[in-house]
């Protein structure tokens, strides 16, 4: 009987595991959540600037003039959309709506595709 902990290997190479679509939606929910927490201080600053007069308010619209800022904004748009959609999906599933496997697979796909589409539209608008 093997008892010495640490001696036994474990198989846990995430690249060799085939993840169902729900797991992809879930890790996306987590990553987008981290991005949104990171963007919260910037959001508070943007709120402050938007109230500091006509010029500052207008300056916020010109944020996308620099490509790197536009790219960050696209990332933010993806994070916000994915987190919102995947979050609504979770709230509904917690209430027992669409928590069966076929519906949950469909809604996971829907959230992933819709968030990617919204991010692509944002990218097309700001990065071209």
């Amino acid at each position: 009987m093997r008892t010495s902990a640490g001696a036994a290997p474990k198989f846990l190479n995430l690249l060799q595991i085939r993840f169902p679509i729900g797991a992809i939606a879930s890790i996306g929910h987590r990553i987008s959540g981290v991005l949104l927490v990171l963007s919260l201080p910037l959001l508070a600053l943007a709120l402050d600037r938007s109230l500091r007069g006509e010029a500052e308010f207008a300056a916020l619209r010109d944020l996308v003039s620099a490509p790197w800022r536009a790219a960050l904004l696209v990332l933010f748009v993806w994070a916000a959309t994915h987190h919102l959609l995947a979050g609504i999906r979770h709230l509904l599933m917690d209430a027992g709506i669409g928590s069966g496997l076929p519906q949950a697979r469909t809604s996971a796909w829907a959230a992933i595709v819709a968030a990617a589409a919204v991010a692509l539209i944002a990218a097309a608008r700001w990065l071209s």
Binding site: R30, L40, A44
Partner: peptide
């Protein structure tokens, strides 16, 4: 409402960070 919005964002975010 703006203050409530940011307060819930902060609380929600902290709970999420805690889960992570």
């Amino acid at each position: 409402l703006i203050v409530v919005f940011f307060a819930t964002l902060a609380l929600h975010g902290w709970i999420g960070v805690r889960d992570i």
